[in-house]
Computed example of a mutant assay.
Amino acid sequence: MGRAGGGGGSSSAVAAPVEGGVGAGAGAGAGERALAIMKMAEKFSRDASKPADEDVAKRVFHVAAGRVEVRYHLGEGRITAGHVVLQRDGPAQAVQINPLAPKPRALDLLQLFRTLQAAERDACQAVRDSEWESREIARVRAGQEQGIALEVPYYDVARVKAEDSDDEPPDEASSAADYLTPFLPPGLGAGGMTREQCLAVRERCLRALKDRLARLDEEQAALARRQAAFSRDRDMLTPAEEEEHEVAAQEAGFRINILQRRLARHEEAALSKYYELDRKLRNDARLALLLVPA
């Protein structure tokens, strides 16, 4: 805390906790624990433009006792410094090191005491402002810590969107690919398939579509199981195992985020896709035996 017309300085305060309400300091709400200021001290650096006997080195405000102490800087070649003690109820005490200096008049001491009372009020307000600022910083920090969310990097989002986008036209290789090839029995000859093989191909094809639509539930269930196991065995885990769990949870959250986007994009069309695939299978000439009564 600086002073008017002088060099820079610092300040400190001693306080005791009291209940908020009557007697609590400004800036403390009702029911909060405020700090009742008992003592404040201000220290000032040396101002070479003033004599040492007039240059304040330290001011101590004994708020509870109603007393103010003013200590001056050491003069050149001196081992002691002058000081003044002013009280709200009691006589003033002034100690001068220079015996030739004029003694302070009572009117001057009264004016000094009034000036120090104003400085005491300013110091109290500065302490209250610091308390309020500290509480605000703690409140904002607590809110930020409770609102932590995992952010997916932009490049990962762009890559996944490019890989899973349904708007891109398929290339020639994917257009020429047969949708039944992964589900056909190996070593299928020119004679075609039996009815049992056709039924198996149809079931595998429809099951693959269902599995893709149900993958989100599996990922969420796996993450829930991992978190439950972590909560149960947390006290027995090593730091390395805790770090491994955090990495796995982040990866699972990333996969779930991708699957949720896919689900939102395909949720309305999922049933129609299922029926469309079933119709396509029924109209496929290779599975014509499915339409023949058993």
Rank of each mutant, 00 (worst) to 15 (best):
G5K: 07
G7D: 04
G9K: 05
S12N: 08
A13E: 14
E19R: 15
V22Y: 03
G23K: 07
G25R: 12
G25S: 14
G25W: 00
A26Y: 02
A26L: 02
A36R: 15
A36I: 01
A36P: 02
M40L: 13
M40C: 11
A41P: 02
F44R: 12
R46D: 04
D47R: 09
A48S: 09
S49M: 01
K50H: 03
K50Y: 01
P51V: 00
V56M: 08
Y72W: 05
Y72N: 09
G75H: 06
E76F: 07
G77P: 11
R78T: 12
T80Y: 10
L86P: 04
G90M: 04
G90K: 11
P91T: 12
A92K: 03
A92G: 03
A92Q: 03
Q93N: 02
Q93M: 05
V95G: 00
V95E: 12
Q96E: 09
Q96F: 11
P99V: 09
A101S: 12
P102V: 00
K103I: 01
P104Q: 04
R105C: 02
A106T: 08
L107T: 02
L109P: 01
L110T: 03
L110M: 01
L112V: 02
F113H: 14
R114N: 14
T115C: 05
T115G: 14
L116Y: 07
L116W: 02
Q117I: 01
A119K: 14
Q125N: 00
R128H: 00
D129L: 08
D129M: 05
W132S: 08
E133Y: 03
R135L: 05
E136N: 11
I137T: 06
R139G: 05
Q144T: 01
G147D: 10
I148F: 00
I148W: 01
L150T: 10
L150I: 09
E151A: 15
V152F: 10
P153I: 11
Y155K: 09
V157G: 02
V157W: 04
A158W: 03
K161G: 14
K161M: 12
E163R: 07
D164P: 00
S165E: 08
D167K: 13
P170F: 08
D171G: 15
S174W: 13
A176H: 08
A177G: 09
T181Y: 05
T181W: 07
T181L: 12
F183W: 13
F183T: 08
M193R: 12
R195N: 08
Q197H: 07
A200E: 11
V201Y: 09
V201P: 11
R202Q: 10
E203A: 15
R204D: 06
A208I: 01
D211H: 04
E218W: 08
Q220L: 15
A224F: 06
R225E: 15
R225K: 13
A228W: 04
F230W: 06
L237V: 02
P239Y: 04
A240Q: 13
E241P: 05
E246R: 13
A248I: 00
A248H: 00
A248P: 00
G253E: 13
I258L: 09
Q260V: 03
L263R: 13
H266A: 09
E268A: 15
E268Y: 04
E268K: 10
A269H: 10
A269E: 14
A270S: 14
A270F: 11
L271R: 11
K273S: 13
L281C: 08
R282A: 10
L287M: 11
L289T: 06
L290G: 09
L291A: 15
V292Q: 15
